[in-house]
């Protein structure tokens, strides 16, 4: 079976992995010159289905809870299983209660337990929610490493404008995200920035709740911290706005004052593809399969969607999966 995958983001690469491990002949094409720069490249890389349940439907939890295992198996050593810490400034303590009411899979912890988990946050917060089962990875390293692994498995990659013109394949898989221009698909702009400092160390993603501007800080190797992300109903991909920089930096500073002295090494903008219900879809249209609408859950939901799409392509989906598809 020859499969042509359009789009080398997290959806395309996870699908390539699912197909290649089952013996399909896979080619991945992308209009970009390289992987860097797509929406997946700007992701936080949090595998946090319990936290996401705060604003997402149950489906995100059920589809996402296996993600950390998938990534660990596909890329050993990349997944950090240190959980997620959720905190709120004292005046927004009500936000922590609300977050707790809407989620599960956490322990409410006190100042002492916070200090034990994250010594650098000692004394800053009196209580927090700790989601011990959650994990995170560095999305950029994961994408590059996965591409490398796929090449070794015999998957062909073809980049650039000339690569995307039609070529023969038994099945085409459209994983082009917002550029796919599917009916009902919209863009949700996300802006982020990367700070560099050796004065703060965090072992896990920390979410700082705020009624207007909830922000997360994800530690990466090399003293880097990804701070994200805005959610704006727009598919404009232009540079980050001054206001967004202010808000993200302000939140990082509120989490730890040393972030005020950090180097601002990068800002980025990505356009999340989303359907009206903010849930992902796998659709079949003749010989074309489409995975889209991963919204803010790319690394979290791509494995489950890739698994489903691969089963459709290879004709191995279970009765249950078929029934679920018909339901959609």
């Amino acid at each position: 079976m020859k499969v042509l995958i359009r789009g080398a983001g997290v959806a395309g690469l996870t699908l390539a992995h699912e197909l290649a491990t089952r013996g399909a002949s896979v080619t991945v094409v992308d209009i970009r010159r390289q992987i860097a720069g797509n929406a997946s490249w700007q992701a936080g890389g949090m595998l946090a289905p319990w936290c996401e349940r705060e604003s997402a439907e149950e489906t995100v939890l059920s589809l996402g809870r296996g993600a950390a295992d998938w990534w660990s198996a596909a890329l050993p050593g990349h997944v950090m299983r240190n959980g997620t810490l959720v905190v709120a400034p004292a005046r927004d303590a009500g936000e922590l209660d609300r977050f707790g009411r809407r989620t599960s899979g956490y322990r409410a912890i006190d100042a002492e337990a916070i200090a034990a988990l994250e010594p650098d946050l000692e004394g800053s917060f009196t209580r927090a929610l700790f989601f011990a089962e959650e994990a995170h990875l560095d999305p950029r390293r994961a994408l590059l490493e996965l591409q490398q692994k796929l090449v070794e498995m015999g998957v062909r990659f073809d980049f650039g404008y000339g690569a995307v013109h039609s070529r023969s394949a038994d099945v085409e898989a459209d994983c082009t995200g917002i550029t796919g221009r599917l009916t009902g698909l919209r863009g949700v702009r996300g802006e982020m920035l990367i700070l560099k400092t050796s004065e703060v160390a965090l072992a896990r993603p920390v979410r700082l709740l705020h009624p207007r501007i909830p922000v997360y800080v994800v530690p990466r190797s090399g003293n880097l911290f990804m701070v994200g992300a805005t959610m704006i109903e727009s598919d404009a991909a232009g540079p980050i706005t001054a206001r967004s920089v202010l808000e993200l930096l302000n939140a990082a500073y509120a989490l730890h004052p040393a972030f005020g002295e950090a180097e601002l090494v990068e800002t980025g903008t990505g356009i999340r593809p989303a359907f009206a219900d903010n849930l992902p879809r796998v659709e079949r249209d003749g010989n074309t399969i489409r995975i889209n609408g991963l919204y803010r859950h790319g690394f979290l939901l791509a494995p489950a969607m890739a698994h489903k799409a691969a089963a459709m392509i290879l004709g191995t989906e279970t009765e249950k999966e078929r029934a679920h598809e018909a339901h959609h």
Binding site: L185, I232, E233
Partner: peptide, 8 residues
């Protein structure tokens, strides 16, 4: 986003 897009 300033009315630039957000059309959907």
């Amino acid at each position: 986003s300033g009315g630039k897009t957000g059309g959907k």
